[in-house]
Structures are given as structure tokens and as C-alpha cells.
Design a protein around this nucleic acid. Structure first.
Lengths: 231, 231
DNA sequence: ACCTGAACACCGTTCAAGT
DNA sequence: ACCTGAACACCGTTCAAGT
């Protein structure tokens, strides 16, 4: 259903070892490449959001014709897939060998994950649809390893992983879109006071005004980690 | 930014008490109405998914011209907003007065919430973007009341509510899209075995094959509820 | 008050070529 | 191997009318 995972190279796999991997024009211009396309797509998504990524716009930024993209990429879907996974590449190796402090590792990994998604707000809403990129799977693998070393039995592993995943994803998706839709706080306030008599408890606890997202995230995460079944 | 909340009636609020609320043609045809539009939009979304909702298609189903929709509705965004909130209307009053068994109430409410989103998979991905519909707010209010009666202090309420919200939303979004993208299990299996040596822990725990979604959801939820700070 | 068709601006992608 | 312009099918919405 999704585009075949053939690396996105060539039109219907007519990639037959290629004559020469010239790569660059003599003129000096970098020419088009998958890497440039993906990097520029991420830029565009960061700048304009998920609806701002248009093939024509992407080509413009790359100084190419629209249809040039289609040699490197099967369709727009594939651009999304590649941009998403690109964002989840590791920077520093998370392999700190302090086997005793697993909890610090887990929190660090999840906060890094969340930070990435907040830096690229489009990624949170894209992630659940295409969670099988190499970097995303790599992060799930590392996470599993850490939990395993921390004493989580294989039988409990999936509940642990999915609970954490669900929580982080939900928190980020919600935060990213609240930050957006409440950009104009004026309208938000008006809405809220009009609501106060219909939703007294929400009004009392200021549910929709509490913007300590980081603190709230961390506290809920602690609850989840406290409850992790470990041998 | 979002469409003004004027009930979606009339073009730029030229709703001036209206001459007569005729409503029906003498011919018998129900004619167009906001309710019919929203109900049909939900049908269409259920049948064709989020990308299947096109204004022309919606009009077709209603036996009307496309542009007729725009008298009742400002734009496509508003159709999404209304369809989303419509789906979260209450059926049975959840006001069971058993103050001692708050936990059963909470679990029931959250499973009902999740069931709705799984019945209308498009709703999960739409929800975070427009969480301020009346029915959604009503559910958050009821939830807060139950937790409050259960002994959760106001100071802890937002962490509790958001943790549960994040978890339910993340779980549903993930499940809905996995169910979709793995519709063809054949491709999924192939992908997985190709991956087995690179992601041994994932392979060992069968993370991506474990399809006991309901059990996993419930267990993670129990962890969260166990950890709820109550006076 | 309510509905409509024609038309516009825009977008992803196919095709048949170019070098 | 790599890039391109013209053209097609499609979609949300504006506009100027109809009743």
C-alpha cells in the first residue's frame, strides 16, 4: 500500500547498477539528490506546516522544475515518509553504560523524542500513520533494550513500550495543536469565559489555561514509570 | 483562525431572526439542513476515511449541488469540526451515583471514548486539532467531576486529566493507523522478517505483531489509574 | 431564505520528450 | 541517467444569479 521501500531511487526500479555515479554537474551546482529533497522538505514543513508542503513549492526551493522531483521520489507520500524518518535520526549515541540508572535513560530518551516532535510539530501528527521508518524502529529497539536491562520481562514489554509510546505521542500531538490553535489567546479567553458556567470544574482547575506542559508531561510520565512491572 | 462559532447558520451572520422557519418543502423532500449535512459527512468519513470527504461527494450524497452546502457551512473546515463533535455526543447519561466506585466510572468513560474513536477512525486524528467542541468539553467536564469526587485535588487535576487524555488519544491514534497500514499483513510480515536481525528485541517481543490492543490498553490504563494522586 | 452553474485558482501526477 | 513543459483530472471556493 505504501510506496515500495526501494530507497526511492529511480523510476520503477530501473536502477540497473547505473553507468557512472557522476553526481555533480561540472558547473558546480549541487544538482538534485534525495538528500537535498528530503532536507528541503523538512525545512518547508517546519516553516509552513503540513499543508504548506506542495510539490511545486518544494521544487521552487530546490531551483528545479516540479517534475524533476519525480525521478527521485515516487510521489508526495514518499516525501512525507522520508522527511518524517529523517527527523528521528540519532545525534548523540544514547548508549550510556550506567546499567543502574535505567530510569534516567528512559526519561532522557522520551524527552528527546518529545523535543524533536515539538521542534517539528508536523511530525507528531504524521508519526502514527508511518511508524515503520528505520530511525523510528531504531528508537523503539533501543528503548526495549533499556527496559529489558532494567528488569522488564518480555511478557510485559509490549505493554510497557506501547504505554510510553501512547503517552508521549498523545502529549505531543495535543500540545503541538493547542499551541497552534491558541496562538490567538484573545479568542481563547473569550471562548473560555463564555463557557465558565457550563463547565465549572474545567473552569475551576483552569484545565485549558494551564500551560505548564513540560511539568505536566514529566509528572504523568513518572506515574507511568512508577507503575512499570519489573522483575 | 477557526470558523466563527456562530452555529454555522447563514452567510456572514446575515441571520436576522428569519422570516419563517418553514424547514420543509411542500414536495416532501427533507431539503438541506445542517443536521443532514453533518450526519452525511460522518457517514462519508466512516466509509471513505478522512481523504474521502470532498465537498462535491458530500453534496452528491445529499442530492444537492455543491454550492448549496456553502449556505449552511462556511467551509470544509467547519464540516470537519461539526462532524467531529457530533460523534462525541452522549448516548446514555454516565451519571451513575455510586460514589465509591469511581474507578469503574473512569474506566467506563475512557473505554467509551476509545470505542467511539475506533468506530470512527478519522476522529482520533482530527481530535487534537479541534478539541473544543461542546461534546468534547462536556466529556472533559464530567471526567473532572468524577475524579474530583474520587479525591483528586484541584492542584493535581490537570496532570490527571491530561495524562489520561494523552494516553487514550495516543493509544487510539496508533491503533487506528496500525490497523489500516497493516491491512495487508503479508507485506507487514515480510517487512518484519527482513528487519529481524537489525531489531532483535522488537523481534523477540513481537512488538509489532502483538495485536491484543484491548488488553494492552487496559493494562496501561490501570498503571495510570493506580498512580493517580488522591487525597 | 435558500439553492444553483459557471468559472477561477490551485494541486498532484501522466506523458512524451529533451540532454 | 537525469531533467523538463505541457496537459489532465480534480478540488475548494467566489461570484453573480436564480426562486
Amino acid at each position: 500500500m505504501a510506496a515500495k521501500g526501494n530507497g526511492g531511487q529511480g523510476k520503477r526500479s530501473q536502477r540497473i547498477e547505473s553507468a557512472a555515479q557522476a553526481g555533480k554537474k561540472p558547473g558546480g551546482e549541487p544538482s538534485l539528490s534525495l538528500e537535498r529533497i528530503v532536507a528541503t522538505a523538512v525545512e518547508l514543513l517546519d516553516a509552513e506546516g503540513i499543508d504548506g508542503l506542495k510539490m511545486r513549492r518544494l521544487a521552487d526551493r530546490l531551483g528545479a522544475g516540479v517534475m524533476s522531483l519525480y525521478w527521485h521520489v515516487a510521489n508526495k507520500e514518499e516525501v512525507f515518509d522520508l522527511a518524517l524518518d529523517a527527523v528521528f535520526a540519532y545525534r548523540a549515541p544514547p548508549q550510556r553504560i550506567e546499567p543502574e540508572d535505567w530510569r534516567r535513560d528512559v526519561v532522557h530518551m522520551l524527552e528527546d523524542w518529545r523535543a524533536i516532535m515539538l521542534r517539528h510539530p508536523w511530525s507528531a501528527s504524521l508519526l502514527p500513520r508511518r511508524a515503520l521508518g528505520a530511525n523510528v524502529l531504531g528508537r523503539l529497539e533501543t528503548m526495549s533494550e533499556v527496559l529489558s536491562r532494567a528488569g522488564v520481562a518480555d511478557a510485559d514489554m509490549n505493554v510497557a513500550i506501547w504505554s510510553l509510546w501512547n503517552y508521549v505521542l498523545g502529549a505531543t500531538v495535543t500540545r503541538a495543536s493547542f499551541a497552534l490553535s491558541h496562538a490567538d489567546q484573545a479568542a481563547g479567553q473569550k471562548r473560555l469565559s463564555a463557557l465558565s458556567e457550563r463547565y465549572p470544574t474545567i473552569e475551576r482547575t483552569r484545565l485549558l489555561l494551564d500551560s505548564d506542559w513540560d511539568g505536566t508531561f514529566r509528572k504523568g510520565l513518572d506515574v507511568l514509570l512508577d507503575g512499570l512491572p519489573r522483575g
